[in-house]
Design a binder for these strands. Structure first.
Lengths: 91, 91
DNA sequence: TTGATATTTCCACAAATATCGAATCAAGGG
DNA sequence: CCCTTGATTCGATATTTGTGGAAATATCAA
């Protein structure tokens, strides 16, 4: 991982709702979670969460898949490992 | 480490100049680096770097010590390990 | 096609962050 | 005491980020 991407990932996780959302996606594992379920769980309006999910997606930390009407989000473990690896190597 | 502090640390590292400054402080080891030396190395005005060092300090990632006219900054390895540990446990 | 559901995009606005010159503060030397 | 050096704080400004209602998009079911 190069530093530009690491900065994006760090910034994506450096926010209360996003860190919590990511944590829950990690716990949810391969099944992932629908955007709506996540919004309700976090007590955040849909539009706000959508913004945060976009940030996490843009940082490469989560991925999106449409299933029927729902958009399922999943944590990208490899990206997370890449970030931790970067921190351990460089810092 | 609890999530509030993790968010502060993530946010502190999620910036080009701060990540680079922290990286250099880690490499510098126990000797640390003076604020001025760091500012010159990064090519950032003193006042700007001072702002960034304050952010890193507030997040607990670095510590400050006055030596004569200079303020020496050092990376706090324990804090960094705490952050990585938090990420590995929770995410 | 109409309607219901799931979610995103748009918009406007509030709040936080980044930048950097100038003024200020601390410490040491002559 | 005065001057220089090293660094922070202040102040003004530009940029980015976060928020949430309303409108738009997508999918499915009847």
């Amino acid at each position: 991982m190069k530093s530009g991407l690491a900065i994006k990932a760090l910034g994506a996780l450096a926010q209360e709702h996003r860190l919590e959302a990511f944590r829950r996606l990690v716990q949810a594992g391969a099944d992932g979670l629908a955007a709506g379920a996540l919004a309700e769980a976090l007590g955040v309006p849909n539009s706000s969460l959508s913004f945060h999910l976009a940030q996490l997606t843009h940082a490469g930390l989560i991925v999106q898949q449409r299933v029927g009407r729902s958009l399922i989000y999943r944590a990208d473990y490899a990206a997370m490992n890449g970030l931790v690896g970067y921190l351990m190597e460089n810092c």
